[in-house]
Design a protein around this nucleic acid. Structure first.
Lengths: 164, 164
DNA sequence: CCGGGGTGGTTGAAAATTCAATAATTGAAT
DNA sequence: ATTCAATTATTGAATTTTCAACCACCCCGG
């Protein structure tokens, strides 16, 4: 109950900026992708993950972990992509419980068609806005944030972990 | 049309880091807030916006613009908050079309109760991870990103924005 | 071989979001 | 006054996400 240390102006700029930048970049990329290719940014990420994997296939559980989504959410999403013919499910040979999401040729083709435009959006919305001299700092900060917020919840003194 | 310039390793670290950091920070704050106060991060943002406004009230349209949400989405969200008694609607005296979302005393109390814990989370998940020497750069970059992705018009010229 | 405990994934219903259509009001032009 | 276009917000249906229950299979100990 002690008086919390409030955010000073610089900290507030970072916090608000982070929140708004995330939203805006996401909204812009999503809208652009949807209009140009009929794909959600999430759909696109699914296709990317599969296309970069051995045999263009991935276990459902690995894919959901990579996407930072629940298995249920992924399952429904794959349903929709499968209905559109961009992905199909295959039984996992090594583990009878498992399923593989496999990128179809159609799916790969849609990815290839969408990629250049999307790449341009990523540059326009984010990358080209960061000066070369700033890039190393930004990359390091982002990676530190990712690491600190990775699942192993028992994070280093999060200041207020003592509140079951 | 031309061969797209792919992302180099540093650019890729930034892009991936940005995407993952956004998701992780959001998920963590949302989970923490939900557990500690029964509020979504979005609910919380609604209460904050109202609490900081004249008379703790705001036009629906202003609120939705501030939150970067559609009016429909806000309307449904206010339905839920109103059902819980944290917010109520009032007719706008100056414009018969308008409605004001007004923060109730209960709503303000919940905000006050949730704020210290949330503030700690924001520090733990984001602010404290950025070295003092890095902060100015980070704030500037984020604000540049926000500005470049603000609604005005679809800066279709993906190549690059205005070169000053 | 059999029985548990744990993992991988799906399912369906509930909750939230999006999308298109609608109603009410304003401001401006006729 | 009256009409017309634009603005404000809500509504309900379709889509998507979340949540909890569930099934099938793996692994391991008896």
């Amino acid at each position: 109950m002690t008086e919390p240390r409030w955010l000073d102006p610089l900290e507030m700029r970072i916090w608000r900026g982070f929140l708004e930048a995330s939203l805006r970049v996401d909204q812009r990329l999503d809208a652009s992708l949807k209009e140009a290719a009929g794909l959600t940014l999430e759909d696109y990420e699914v296709l990317v993950a599969l296309s970069e994997s051995e045999g263009r296939r991935l276990r459902m559980s690995e894919l959901s972990a990579w996407l930072l989504h629940s298995q249920s959410r992924l399952s429904h999403r794959i349903d929709r992509l499968e209905r559109r013919g961009l992905v199909r499910r295959e039984k996992c040979p090594e583990d009878g419980r498992g399923l593989l999401a496999v990128l179809t040729d159609d799916g790969f083709a849609e990815l290839v068609a969408a990629a250049p435009g999307h790449l341009g959006d990523v540059r326009g919305a984010l990358i080209d806005l960061i000066e070369p001299a700033e890039r190393e700092v930004v990359a390091n900060v982002l990676e530190r944030i990712v690491a600190a917020n990775r699942d192993p919840d028992t994070q280093t003194g999060i200041g207020q972990a003592a509140r079951s």
